[in-house]
Amino acid sequence: MSQHQPADSRLSDGALMVLFANGDPGAARVLTERLLPRALGHAARVLGDRAEAEDVAQEAMMRLWRAARDWRQDGEAAPATWLYRVVANLCVDRLRRRGRTDPLDDPDLAADGAPGVVSQMVEADRIAALDAALASLPERQRQAVVLRHIEGLSNPEIAAILDIGVEAVESLTARGKRALGAALAGRKEALGYDD
């Protein structure tokens, strides 16, 4: 007989963290289903390397588990925000260790599960072009653009993740998006937009 009720998938991430700390065996599964794709997606876009992104996502999730014991629902950031911050910092560490910011051609970064072979190829080309353009951005701009325009987070959330002000986020995302647009302008063919 289990000592705990299985985790309810309708619970908030914070409540699941508390359940995890109390030994609930189902909480980890629900949190993994919710948060791992986001951690992996962000790391993959910023690092441009799927294998490295998986390492970062696993490490970030490990830190999440370790943080559960002292997690306070009322005082902590949302687990997703906390996790994005850890992923962002781990990515910075990796990029600095690499000593370069050029893109890695990784075909695995193409979107998962796009329907139809042709549309899948077009979408893969678009994503490959975007990844190349993203990799040309300075690290902070890249993080901000990915969080804002791909992960869909709000500016205050991004400010909390990157530990900067909201105005700085607005500036980073605006400059980043302009730079992305400029980098992609010469690749309209790859993106399926012929003049």
Binding site: P37, G113, R126, L184
Partner: peptide, 18 residues
């Protein structure tokens, strides 16, 4: 250019499946 960028961003927004 904006349309191209938005299309690329939209394509990347697909849920990453671990």
């Amino acid at each position: 250019d904006d349309a191209a960028l938005e299309a690329a961003l939209a394509a990347a927004r697909g849920r990453t499946i671990p």
